[in-house]
C-alpha cells in the first residue's frame, strides 16, 4: 500500500515536472502557477488555538481582498503540541503543492526537546507572517521601580522576586528565560512559576507572584486599567501601544525576543508553489484587513519570505541555548 502510494506520488511528481517544463517552455520562466483545486491549510491544534487563529486571520484578509481565487479549507489536526500535524506533513504530503501548515515556535522547540522527530529542516519554509513581543510587568503597587531595579534585585538574590510565566517550552516561558538569562542570571536559580498562559495575569493581579512575563496583547488591558506597571518590552523597538515603556535592550540587557508565526510547506514542495504562496502572503500582509487584525491581536509586523529559512536556523540556535541554560533540555 505504502509502495503504491509512493510510486503513484512519484508518478504524480513526474507528471508535474513534465507539465512544469512544458509550461515553462511555452510561456517563459515567469509562468503563472496556481493551485488546481481546493487547498488545505493545516493547523496543529484545535479551533480557536493560536495557530488556528493565525490561519483564519490570514484567510480572512485574503478573502476580503480577493487575493485568492480558489477555495481554502483550514484543517485542524490537534495533538502532540503540533507534532502530529508536522509528522503528517512530512510523511503524507511530501512534494505536494496544495497543503501548507501554519506554525510557530513549537516547530523549533519540539524538535530540540525530542518530542517531535521532525523540525523545520524537514519542511519547506514559506513565510514569516507576524511576530509577538513580550512585556515584563509588576503589579501597579509594586516597589520595584523599573526593569534595572528588577534585575539588580535578582542579581543580589535570585529568589527575592517570584516570577510568573508559562510552562516550558511555551513562548512566554522562553521570553522570560531569554530576558533573565540575557541579563547574566542563572535562570535555574530563579523562583519561576509556570502557569497556563491565560492565568498569569490573574496570578500577578492577585499578588501570588511579584513579576511576570507575558505577551504584550495579554497584559495591555491591565496596564491601561492601571493595575499593572510595565517595566520593559522584548521587541526590537518600543511598542506602538506603550511608547513610554523602554525595551529590554534599552534597559541594558542585550536581548530581543519574539515569537513568530508563519507558514511552512511539505518537504520537496515544488518551487512554483513556494513562489506562489510567498507572493500571495506578501500581498495579504499589505491589506487593510490584515493591518486591522494584527492590531486587534497585538501581532507585530514581521513579514519575511526570503531569508525565512535562515531566520529559522538562527531561532533554532537561540532556543537550543535557552533550553540548555534553563536546564530543561539536558540531552546532548
Amino acid at each position: 500500500m505504502r509502495n503504491t502510494l509512493r510510486s503513484s506520488s512519484r508518478a504524480a511528481l513526474g507528471v508535474v515536472a513534465v507539465l512544469a517544463v512544458l509550461v515553462a517552455t511555452a510561456l517563459g520562466a515567469s509562468a503563472e502557477w496556481a493551485p488546481k483545486g481546493n487547498v488545505s491549510w493545516m493547523a496543529g491544534a484545535g479551533p480557536g488555538s493560536g495557530w488556528d487563529t493565525t490561519a483564519r486571520a490570514a484567510l480572512q484578509a485574503m478573502t476580503a481582498h480577493k487575493v485568492l481565487k480558489h477555495p481554502v479549507t483550514v484543517v485542524n489536526k490537534p495533538g502532540g503540541a503540533g507534532a502530529i500535524a508536522v509528522a503528517e506533513m512530512v510523511n503524507q504530503h511530501k512534494g505536494k503543492d496544495d497543503v501548507i501548515l501554519v506554525t510557530s515556535l513549537p516547530l523549533i522547540t519540539n524538535k530540540i526537546m525530542g518530542t517531535s522527530p521532525y523540525g523545520y529542516k524537514n519542511l519547506t519554509p514559506i513565510v514569516r507572517l507576524a511576530a509577538t513581543h513580550y512585556l515584563v510587568a509588576v503589579p501597579a503597587n509594586s516597589d520595584i521601580k523599573d526593569f534595572k531595579d528588577l534585575i539588580a534585585r535578582l542579581r543580589k538574590d535570585p529568589k527575592s522576586v517570584s516570577i510568573g510565566g508559562s510552562t516550558p517550552p511555551a513562548d512566554d516561558w522562553a521570553a522570560a528565560m531569554a530576558v533573565f538569562g540575557g541579563a547574566g542570571l542563572d535562570v535555574t536559580k530563579l523562583k519561576f512559576i509556570g502557569y497556563d498562559g491565560a492565568q498569569v495575569a490573574g496570578a500577578l493581579l492577585g499578588g501570588h507572584i511579584q513579576a511576570a512575563v507575558n505577551t504584550v496583547g495579554e497584559f495591555a488591558q491591565h496596564v491601561e486599567a492601571g493595575k499593572m506597571k510595565p517595566l520593559a518590552t522584548t521587541g526590537p523597538e518600543r511598542e506602538p501601544k506603550f511608547q513610554s515603556v523602554p525595551t529590554v535592550k534599552e534597559s541594558g540587557v542585550d536581548v530581543v525576543f519574539m515569537n513568530w508565526r508563519g507558514f511552512v510547506g511539505p518537504p520537496g514542495m515544488p518551487k512554483e508553489a513556494l513562489a506562489y504562496w510567498q507572493q500571495k502572503f506578501g500581498e495579504t500582509v499589505k491589506t487593510q484587513t490584515w493591518e486591522d487584525l494584527r492590531a486587534r491581536y497585538s501581532w507585530a509586523d514581521a513579514f519575511m519570505a526570503d531569508g525565512f529559512d535562515r531566520f529559522l536556523a538562527e531561532n533554532d540556535r537561540l532556543m537550543s541555548d535557552i533550553l540548555k541554560n534553563a536546564g530543561v533540555f539536558k540531552k546532548k
Binding site: 480557536g48 491565560a198 490573574g202 493581579l205 488591558q221 486599567a225
Partner: peptide
C-alpha cells in the same frame, strides 16, 4: 471583568471578543 478565561469555552469566547475588537477586562 478581568479578561481571564476560567474554562475551555470562555477561553474561546475571549478569542471571539478579541475578533470583534473588544477586550474583555477591567475596561
Amino acid at each position: 471583568t478581568l479578561g481571564i478565561p476560567g474554562s475551555g469555552t470562555t477561553a474561546i469566547l475571549l478569542g471571539a471578543f478579541m475578533m470583534f475588537g473588544l477586550q474583555p477586562g477591567p475596561l
